[in-house]
Design a binder for these strands. Structure first.
Lengths: 149, 149
DNA sequence: AGAGAAAAGTAAGTAGACATATCAATTCTG
DNA sequence: CAGAATTGATATGTCTACTTACTTTTCTCT
């Protein structure tokens, strides 16, 4: 067994790559042009309309600069609206447009359906276990303040 | 429980982020300037000197274009040597320089030591289980030809 | 041997990801 | 209330990552 197959970091990078690949592929097949992060942003705004970019960044665990660029593209696609906040002129209030709402509604089942395929070769029990372990680790990391801020 | 916490893709992205963050941080603390992928490339070349860029790309599961850029930077840092292959003038033969060998030797224990911290909040048994499940999924994905080629 | 397919590397373009610095606005503190 | 610290957003730079297109070289098959 090579070194890389023992390395948590390498395995995680590999899984990340696979999941991104599957996401992009299925999305294109379904006739949509959304990246994983763009989807995450839309999904987050669906539940929390009216947040600003910093809030969105925190919600999807990315930094402000990254989310700024993501928001630019989503705005250009007409999926979200960006406006200056009244109470804080620094902040940009975000919300889904009608087209954005339609898109997320249409796309959600596709995304739910592909989750399972991101971890091929695992039984249902193993899949559930993986999700449980990953959740536990991710939450612990969040507590340790490790990651994007 | 929010949607994103059920989503395999989101969890994997989050773990990827945490692992990259820890890697970069510890590396810098140890006085080195190596990214995860640069490390993976060096580690691969240590075991397989004389491969070309396409071979390296396959070994670390990235595409040729990405590895080309990574190799550029490693060459500039003086860690690897790149030369035109005699038997195939298209190919670039790669090998660690002496500095590259010293670097990977010095860095390996640091990297081994931080693997565990990439998955915080997991017991030793859970960590082992995660590695096993991730390996299984990654290998299955490889078989399905999903990912970079 | 010669034509066509395949492969190695590179270039250009897009997107994510983050650090750092900067600017403007807001909040905290003395 | 004035100055300081903080925060929201953006700009810049670096690195990863992949696609598509292109050149050069090699391989294959007739």
């Amino acid at each position: 067994m090579s070194v890389k197959l023992r390395m948590a970091g390498h395995l995680i990078r590999r899984l990340h790559q696979v999941s991104t690949h599957i996401f992009t592929q299925r999305m294109r097949e379904a006739g949509f042009d959304l990246t994983p992060v763009q989807f995450a942003a839309l999904e987050s705004l669906r539940h929390n309309p009216g947040t600003d970019q910093a809030g969105l960044a925190q919600a999807v665990a990315k930094d402000r600069a990254t989310i700024g660029a993501v928001v630019d593209r989503l705005e250009q696609k007409g999926l979200i609206a960006r406006s200056v906040s009244q109470r804080d002129k620094r902040a940009r209030v975000l919300a889904l447009t009608e087209q954005g709402q339609n898109t997320i509604a249409a796309v959600l089942p596709v995304v739910e359906a592909l989750q399972r395929d991101m971890l091929p070769g695992l039984s249902d029990a193993e899949y559930a276990q993986f999700i449980a372990l990953a959740s536990k680790a991710a939450e612990a990391a969040e507590t340790l303040d490790t990651g994007a801020g």
